[in-house]
Design a protein around this nucleic acid. Structure first.
Lengths: 252, 252
DNA sequence: AACACAAACATTGTACACAATACTAACTCC
DNA sequence: GGAGTTAGTATTGTGTACAATGTTTGTGTT
């Protein structure tokens, strides 16, 4: 265990920290930042399955009160990203093999329908835009560390779902993507080219062809390949909380 | 508008109110009661779409602090049962026509898969048990007021989903059932025999036959019939908060 | 009368204090 | 030495005060 770096930050000079954040217009007041920050950490693989999320630690790391931390954790628990036990606190879920297959299976079900709706609604313009996104992602991955690859890969699936107007399925997918990230964190194999950009381009091309059935099959295979690359026998061990948020400037 | 009945209850003599509640082992401390109570009110049609849920009102009605109310509302907002706007409070959602169709559509998608898994996993014993549940429901409906019919009908779908081991889809359905209740509340037609018990028995029989395809078709038709019975032109107006919780003993 | 502005009110957001519960470790007794 | 017990510590649960924001009402001006 790494020694605790943060102590407590009673200096609350600038409470106007409420940047508009980038997503989740739903109820984002201040906990939205923390919520997104933890989600990002999971997508970037800085937070591993099984990590205990203590309220005091998070509140001192992010210089917010426990009230805010609490809200963020509650939201994450409803996303099935963390598991809250009544008087025992919150930990990041550790999906077992059954759960791992379930998550991928539900993704296939959901994304099969989403890509159906997306194919029907897609325009040349929207597809070109999507292609540009994948391009940008590829460039970013080349430049940055390997961890971000997975994160951006998940972004593609969410971007794609935006072509549909089904907000219910979109929200399900937004929960499933970080869950998938945790599954991958637990069962990844050495070669972590899990979600290749080429396959994403292929998916876009199939959508462009307008063949709904083919698009569904393409997506299904894509997700199946991800599952196939996992090693459902070897589990990785939990990581450290403070290492995950080392980049957060502590105002103590 | 009905005059406000509750004022405030500062007498908190028995804080050991923490009955184990009946469901949601997830994080049920004290807010679980409120969460279930509001959910029940929606399923029983005592709470209508569009009702504003003020924190102070709920806290005085149920004799709990705003902290607890807040937690319950946050959970409901994640279930897409209530809509929380940053500094404007929470209201029960009023699904528009597009949203209504979407909810029913997603239910078809989810329940088609759930009934597939249920059919595979079903045993004679589990089906008999399910039949007994529907029997009990039918008796209860005969005895009680009409409002509870819908509530128990939703219970059948959830009970049925329990035959599957897919907890992800089960949780989706648990959110969709109250949402459906709100859809029905908004677009119901005079004859509210929405979810007939006979159809439920038919579904069980098809599952018993082991024919997965037939079971899926049966469920799909069942849900389609519900949608067909709705009048997607006429909307009902919001109801009253205090009337919904008149049965709650106020300790003021 | 209609609009603009401002003050009073209502409601939600956040922090913190204390209570309740779980965890840890030291101690006793067998 | 080991298991059970009990104090002490750590962590979460809840209530409440105050701050920030939204809403409404009232007033004055055009």
């Amino acid at each position: 265990m790494v020694a605790k770096k943060a102590k407590a930050s009673k200096s609350r000079d600038i409470p106007s920290q409420s940047a508009p954040d980038r997503v989740e217009s739903l109820n984002g007041t201040q906990d939205g930042r923390l919520y997104n920050e933890i989600l990002d950490a999971i997508l970037d693989r800085r937070l591993s399955p099984g990590v205990k999320l203590k309220e005091d630690e998070l509140s001192s790391i992010f210089s917010v009160s426990r009230t805010v931390v609490r809200r963020a954790l509650l939201r994450l628990s409803h996303d099935r990203i963390v598991d809250i036990q009544p008087n025992r606190g919150a930990t990041i879920i550790r999906p077992d093999v059954h759960k791992a297959r379930e998550i991928l299976g539900v993704r296939r079900l959901i994304e099969r329908e989403l890509i159906r709706e997306a194919t029907v609604a897609a325009t040349k313009k929207s597809l070109d835009e999507l292609r540009r996104c994948v391009d940008d992602e590829r460039d970013q991955v080349r430049r940055q560390h390997v961890g971000s690859g997975l994160r951006l890969s998940g972004d593609f699936h969410i971007q794609l779902s935006m072509l549909s107007t089904n907000s219910t399925l979109q929200s399900y997918l937004k929960e499933l993507v970080p869950q998938t990230s945790l599954v991958i964190a637990m069962y990844q194999t050495p070669h972590h080219t899990l979600c290749s950009h080429q396959e994403h381009f292929d998916i876009i091309d199939v959508i462009a062809s307008g063949d709904v059935q083919a698009a569904q099959v393409e997506m299904d295979n894509h997700l199946q390949r991800i599952e196939d690359k996992l090693d459902l026998g070897n589990e990785r061990s939990p990581g450290d909380l403070y290492a995950a948020f080392a980049h957060v400037k502590n105002t103590a």
